[in-house]
Design a protein around this nucleic acid. Structure first.
Length: 502
RNA sequence: GACCCUGUCGUCCAGAGGCCUAGGACACCCGCCUUUCACGCAGGUAACACGGGUUCGAAUCCCGUCAGGGUCGCCA
């Protein structure tokens, strides 16, 4: 056990998740939220949602809303948060700038932090040099010993600067991880972390510590990827003279290849699971089996049941691979226990509702001669992964190797990703630019995409179809198609001079 | 590369020194049921990373090796 200024045992439990609104609502957010929630509720504590939007360059306007919707969809709700308020607000970091500035100047005054005037350019060069010399990476503390008066002057004159933490030059810095025991690291491995960026906004490290303290967070339950930042946070708590929370680092969800779960290798958006017909209670249950066990061979359990038996002793720390097949099986269990009435409602919620039909019908309307054409015309809006076996000939682009085609399709997906919004018009623009750059014939490229997205050669307008299908389903189909394309045999090329014969 | 975390069937978990000839679930394979398919039911294949200790006894404790992962940003 670590002695010293820790252990927040005597206070009522307050935990939080702090997602940053930079994209689609991530399944990892729901995972960490679930354990925070289950722990808090098992002790009668509070669960708080805080939005960490201190990076203006990455913030997405629709992302915050999607986080709320996704979390509520799986069945998690928060006691305090930007949209519900609470006694420790505001809960959006972009609205708390003054707190971080005050905190930073406290540290500056105490000589525990300093202004750094190094340019990004210098830092970039430094990094390149360090890499070349295979030296330890990190800031070289160039500005650490500037005269405080000079530092103040330069800042007053408007010279751009950041504020960095004065990390001890050496000596052990330990923290007690409640799941793993003592994690020890020497201060010499840690460089002087930026606390306040030159735009005046805090980095994660500062904002996180300041907010957790001000919001009376007692237990920090977050993903394993934060372990190596924790020493910096410990140092901050010490510099401020604040009591540390208890630390819990959960294992990371993994791709099939064991790497940290990522959108290029695995569906990570909660919206994907919703759109592909996973029931929220099944997703949540599944997440509850990742690294944690209910006990007694129970695979299937509700949130309430999980809370009632929740115990950190049931955690295991190996990184769990997110297995879609097992999730699907669990989902099947939930579907089968629904009454016919409930299943009808689930289906209506999913796609068989007026809102969805009103989006879909404009594309199908003129293709329908009798009402009973509807299913035939729109069937791929209601199915899961497509079977491309019968249509692979349309995946060929003349004079382009299948591997290249596959690569280009993946690049298109990335380009869609980079653009905010998912409207036909945007998709059209991005795609046109993509084909032009590739120099492919539009008709070949568009047929390929049409087949990838719908599984057939006839369909409503390509981009309107993608628009209605949604980002997640479209993306998955494009990726699946790329996989198929990559495995296609190269077309018999014009007779090339054989250098080797079998 | 440095530092840190982790290491039981292909995958998710059980196992907190003897109850383990290692248990459950998914997936897979094989039956049964059935006009078909699915469900359901009954079986089966399959793992303690390796090497040293400690101990009467190790999947469980310790050390080393190896492997996987994470982090090394004015991103979170």
């Amino acid at each position: 056990m670590l002695e010293g200024p820790t252990m927040a045992n005597d206070r009522p439990v307050r935990v939080r998740i702090a997602p940053s609104p930079t994209g689609d609502p991530h399944v990892g957010t729901a995972y960490i939220a679930l354990f925070n929630y289950a722990f808090a509720k098992s002790t009668g504590g509070k669960f708080i949602l805080r939005i960490e939007d201190t990076d203006q360059t990455r913030a997405r306007s629709d992302s915050e809303r999607m986080i709320y919707d996704a979390l509520r969809w799986v069945g998690l709700s928060w006691d305090e948060g930007p949209d519900v308020g609470g006694p420790y607000g505001p809960y959006r970091q972009s609205e708390r700038s003054q707190h971080y500035k005050d905190a930073a100047s406290k540290l500056l005054d105490a000589g525990k932090a300093y202004r750094c005037f190094c340019t990004e350019d210098r830092l970039a060069k430094l990094r390149i040099q360090q890499q070349a010399e295979k030296a330890t990476l990190g800031y070289d503390r160039h500005c650490r010993d500037l005269d405080p008066a000079e530092s103040r002057n330069r800042a007053a004159q408007g010279e751009a600067c950041v504020v960095r933490l004065k990390v001890p030059v050496s000596g052990p810095i330990d923290f007690q991880d409640q799941l793993r025991g003592v994690v020890s690291r020497d201060a010499k491995e840690i460089d002087d972390q930026v606390l306040l960026k030159s735009d005046g906004l805090p980095t994660y490290h500062l904002a996180n510590v300041v907010d957790d303290h001000m919001m009376q967070i007692t237990h920090v339950i977050r993903a394993e990827e934060w372990i190596s930042s924790t020493q910096k946070h410990v140092l901050l708590y010490e510099a401020f003279g604040w009591e540390q929370p208890q630390w819990f680092h959960m294992p990371l969800l993994r791709n099939t290849d064991k790497s940290k779960i990522s959108k290029r290798k695995h569906p990570v958006s909660i919206n994907y699971y919703r759109d592909s017909g996973i029931l929220p209670q099944a997703l949540l249950n599944f997440l509850g089996t990742m690294g944690w066990s209910f006990g007694g061979d129970r695979e299937k359990f509700t949130l309430a049941e999980m809370i009632s038996v929740f115990d950190w002793k049931r955690m295991s720390l190996g990184g769990p691979v997110f297995d879609l097949a097992k999730l699907t099986w669990l989902n099947e269990q939930y579907i089968h226990e629904l009454t016919t009435e409930q299943l009808a409602d689930a289906l209506i919620d999913w796609r068989f509702n007026k809102e969805f039909l009103l989006k879909l019908l404009p594309l199908a309307h003129k293709r329908i001669k009798r009402l009973d054409d509807f299913i035939g015309v729109t069937e791929f809006f209601f199915t899961g992964d497509l079977d491309y076996a019968a249509v692979t000939t349309h995946f060929a682009i003349p004079d382009v190797a299948p591997k290249e085609v596959a690569k280009a399709v993946l690049e298109l997906v990335e380009k869609y990703e980079a653009r905010e919004g998912w409207e036909a018009k945007t998709l059209d623009e991005v795609t046109q630019a993509w084909v032009t750059a590739l120099g492919w014939k539009t008709k070949h490229a568009f047929m390929l995409l049409r087949v990838a997205v719908t599984g057939r050669t006839t369909s409503p307008g390509l981009f309107e179809t993608m628009g209605v299908l949604g980002k997640e389903i479209t993306r998955r189909r494009l990726r699946k198609a790329a996989e198929v394309i990559a495995k296609l045999p190269a077309p018999a090329a014009a007779p090339a001079p054989a250098t080797k014969s079998p």
